[in-house]
């Protein structure tokens, strides 16, 4: 089992199961971590903007289909933008360091949640932008930063096809 085309869907399915079955219990100030936005972030870090955007699209689509009742494609839109942006910014980083993935997860997860809410409001889902948005953005950022390093290893493993492994952030 050395093919990303087999490993990536498996990782997405397991992440979705964990997201729906476990993460709801792991709340801080009533806010749960968002594993599904973390995957495109670490995907963008390890594999570049193209794969970051693709991971974001499929993670978002899975969330839209199974978890959210907001319009289908809303999470896919927000998560693809985040995955792509992280990949583009990563290309400008000259030195790798252990703290870069958690720091990126913190800021990019916060941006992902805010982007989802604001995009939703733009298409009429105004209930997504509430007084609680600031709390959600901060807490998701912090909790996702905690999960960043293990998730990075998992996503790197799923993306590795044995030919062009990225040696960064291992």
């Amino acid at each position: 089992m050395n093919q990303p085309r087999l490993k990536v869907p498996l990782v997405l399915l397991v992440a979705l199961v964990l997201h729906t079955a476990v993460m709801g219990h792991l709340r801080l100030a009533g806010v749960a971590p968002d594993l599904m936005v973390l995957i495109p972030i670490v995907g963008g870090l390890t594999s570049g903007p193209e794969r970051g955007a693709a991971l974001g699209f499929f993670c978002g689509l899975a969330v839209d289909l199974v978890v959210q009742t907001t319009p289908l494609g809303l999470s896919a839109l927000a998560f693809s933008i985040i995955g792509y942006t992280v990949g583009v910014l990563e290309a400008g980083i000259l030195r790798s360091s252990w703290w870069i993935p958690p720091a990126t997860a913190l800021f990019a997860s916060a941006a992902g949640e805010a982007l989802y809410a604001v995009s939703g409001a733009l298409v009429g889902q105004t209930q997504l932008v509430t007084d609680r948005l600031a709390t959600i953005v901060v807490v998701v950022g912090v909790l996702n930063a905690v999960f960043a390093l293990p998730m990075l290893r998992i996503v790197r493993w799923s993306m590795r096809d044995g030919s062009a492994a990225n040696a960064r952030y291992v």
């Binding site: 193209e50 699209f57 494609g73 839109l77 933008i81």
Partner: peptide, 13 residues
């Protein structure tokens, strides 16, 4: 690829 994904998302919405 990025633009294609964005357009697909917007079409689905």
């Amino acid at each position: 690829v990025f633009v294609l994904l964005l357009l697909t998302s917007i079409t689905l919405i």
